[in-house]
């Protein structure tokens, strides 16, 4: 690469020495090369400009715009779906509330029915219980009466026996009976 640069470089000629294998000074200041560089630079820039303005930039711009609108569309759709979801939730809540109210009514009706049945049953049971109570009381009264009678008899017999043993002279059944009866009244 170094050997080639010798013949090429005008700068080498300017530097003009035997050791001019290498460029002396700044190649940037060799004005002989300016026209060439400027020409090719102009060509390059025009080509790049044409590539960019005809192909690359419109394409990238359209891709970006497309993406932008796609995202906007998606957002819009998401918004619509969200709206739908809100409506669905409202409908659901309404249905739930309706169902609750209906259930409340059904429960109240059922309660009334049950209460009615219950009242009937209770009054039935009360009546039965009252009847049973009356019957039982009658039986208890009977039992007590018979028991009292038995007690009176036992007391009379006992008292008669006692009186006969202690005072054989007095054997007045009627008096003893009267005395026992009088006593029993106090007990009763």
């Amino acid at each position: 690469m170094a050997s080639e640069s010798t013949e090429v470089a005008h700068g080498a000629a300017e530097a003009g020495h035997a050791a001019a294998e290498h460029y002396v000074g700044m190649p940037q200041l060799n004005f002989d090369w300016y026209a060439n560089q400027i020409f090719w630079l102009a060509v390059t820039l025009v080509i790049i400009y044409l590539i960019l303005s005809r192909v690359a930039l419109p394409r990238i711009a359209s891709v970006l715009a497309e993406r932008h609108s796609a995202i906007a569309n998606d957002l819009e759709r998401a918004e619509a779906l969200k709206q739908k979801a809100v409506e669905a939730e409202e409908a659901y809540n309404k249905a739930l509330a309706d169902a609750r109210a209906e259930a409340g009514q059904i429960v109240a009706a059922a309660k009334q029915d049950i209460q009615k049945d219950l009242d009937v049953a209770i009054s039935h049971a009360d009546a039965e219980i009252a009847a049973k109570t009356v019957e039982s009381e009658g039986r208890i009264g009977d039992i007590r009466n018979s028991a009292m009678q038995a007690v009176e008899e036992v007391a009379l017999a006992t008292a008669t026996a006692i009186v006969r043993k202690l005072m054989p002279s007095i054997d007045d059944k009627k008096a003893v009976s009267a005395a026992v009866k009088a006593r029993m009244k106090g007990v009763n």
């Binding site: 640069s5 460029y23 190649p27 002989d32 090369w33």
Partner: peptide, 29 residues
């Protein structure tokens, strides 16, 4: 020779560098 890398050379042959000569600058552009 740090400045040698900046020397402009024609791509083909060793002739003068005219305004239209394809050079290493042309190549890299």
């Amino acid at each position: 020779h740090p400045m040698d890398q900046f020397v402009i050379k024609p791509l083909f042959g060793n002739g003068d560098i005219l305004w239209y000569t394809p050079t290493n600058a042309t190549l890299w552009m």
